[in-house]
């Protein structure tokens, strides 16, 4: 019996390895990382740390609502608390699969809403080391994915997925992601520049269970070339809170409802 089990295991092992294709791993990872819950809310604390150790702080409430499945449309609403002089500033993003997002910003000092068109691929998210794409995700079809190997990262079994952008308009030439086999969350990501050198590293430093969904509550992105780093922590993270569709409108951008932003 014992022998039979071993044979069976040996038989099953490679099967299990190839049970998931690279594309599926990438898709599951995106679902676990960026799409859990019908909606999501968290108080986000972002620390921008310069090479010399100087810090800039951004504090905001971030709300997200899914419209459709993984990879589908999403809407984001962000209310800023810090820096102090941008208090009451709000920011709204409509994210579409396959094209650049729409963004609106409310500038309270001149009481004006402006649409902002920027390239998701390159633009920094509020001056941090994260690009818009790092925050809201990248179209899965834009990359060629392959599983390079499987290894442990932070004591957890991971797939190591290499994602190479099909178009050459990115700042990086490819990305390696260590994706936890159990949660499908990326534990670590390494970005390699066009010269093939590692230049940006993403690390998930804290993962907590929020209403049954494992959620990365602390993460960092370090640019090895500029020495700049961004640390992000989520507090009061919550799923399925029933955000109204009406929140994502110009009216509420100017006067955000207290119950959602606190």
């Amino acid at each position: 019996m014992k022998r039979f089990m071993i044979v069976l295991l040996l038989f099953l092992l490679p099967l299990e390895v190839f049970a998931l294709s690279a594309d599926e791993v990438a898709r599951k990872s995106q679902a676990a990382f960026l799409y859990p819950g019908k909606d999501f809310k968290a108080r986000v604390m972002m620390k921008l740390i310069s090479k010399g150790g100087q810090e800039r702080v951004r504090e905001m409430t971030m709300l997200r609502k899914n419209y459709g499945d993984t990879g589908g449309e999403q809407k984001y609403f962000i209310y800023f608390y810090q820096p102090a002089d941008v208090k009451d500033m709000t920011f709204m993003v409509y994210k579409y699969p396959g094209k650049d997002a729409d963004r609106w910003l409310f500038v309270p000092a001149i009481s004006m809403v402006r649409r902002i068109a920027a390239k998701d691929k390159h633009s920094s998210f509020v001056g941090s080391d994260f690009t818009y794409e790092d925050v809201s995700g990248r179209n899965l079809q834009d990359d060629a994915h392959s599983i390079i190997k499987e290894e442990k990262a932070g004591g957890k079994d991971c797939y190591v997925v290499k994602s190479t952008p099909k178009a050459g308009d990115m700042d990086y030439s490819y990305k390696m992601a260590w994706i936890d086999k159990a949660t499908f969350l990326p534990l670590k990501e390494e970005y390699f520049d066009k010269k093939g050198e590692l230049y940006k590293v993403f690390t998930a430093t804290e993962i907590k269970d929020v209403k049954g969904s494992p959620t990365i509550t602390k993460r960092s992105m370090k640019n090895l070339q500029s020495g700049h780093m961004t640390e992000v922590s989520y507090t009061r993270a919550d799923y399925g809170i029933g955000i109204d569709d009406s929140l994502f409108s110009e009216r509420f951008l100017k006067q955000p409802p207290k119950k959602w932003i606190e």
Partner: peptide, 11 residues
């Protein structure tokens, strides 16, 4: 000024 600078840093 603070908000313009922030806007600039966002873009």
């Amino acid at each position: 000024i603070g908000q313009y600078i922030f806007l600039f840093s966002m873009s």
